[in-house]
Amino acid sequence: MFGFHYRLESKSIGLVLAIVGVASIGGIVEIAPLFTIHQTVEAAPNMRVYTPLELAGRNIYIREGCYACHSQMIRTLRDEVERYGPYSLAVESKYDHPHLWGSKRTGPDLARLGEKYSDEWHVAHMINPRAVVPESVMPAYAWLARTELRTDDLGDHLNAERRVGVPYTDDMIANATADAYGQAAPDSPAADGVTKRYGKATTVRAFDGKPNELTEMDALVAYLQILGRLTDAAHKPVATAEKQP
């Protein structure tokens, strides 16, 4: 063994090939089967995609680095299930490019946050967390409420998502901008298109309290309110959740 190595270390190409070879094995064995073993991602026929407004909100979540403090992954541990709700399933992040599971909980897990609090609370909390939770160490994001949401490129966003595998239809892509307005303006004519394309259960509300303005706050709150609600596959009580076949 040492004799072989003694020869190897005098050949730079050999050394390079050996390093690449040895270092490739682990990743191949662990990652490739995640695409071939079907049990990896559970079936959830009623899984819906993010609306353009929710997607824009998700991108704000990414932009602001919320993942640095919040996880979106409830582990299969008793205390997490009892605190946050049913453990997260793989299918729930099937359309998440990228995933936002997180690695640090400076703040609580958000995987089951959707509809836990009211829109008003979220707006107040984002404008100044310490106004509603005096102990909070979360930054204030007051500017979100006064920044207009950029919507002109939402069609491009949906299109890029479709290219990486999210089933957006042509209709959804063509109407992305209008749907973003509609979802935050319940009384506007654009609102109907949202429920038509994304389902009756889609929440159409003036998320930031101002139906005639489409702000980044609208988008972020719309996203926070959908967390954990894209499918109800995970909402069977844990104690009766059966093993995947």
Binding site: T76, L77, R78, V81, E82, Y87, V238, A239, T240, A241, K243, Q244
Partner: peptide, 11 residues
């Protein structure tokens, strides 16, 4: 199976 385990322990 972790999922089974956690279901058991919650139960």
């Amino acid at each position: 199976d972790v999922r089974h385990d956690v279901a058991q322990s919650v139960k």
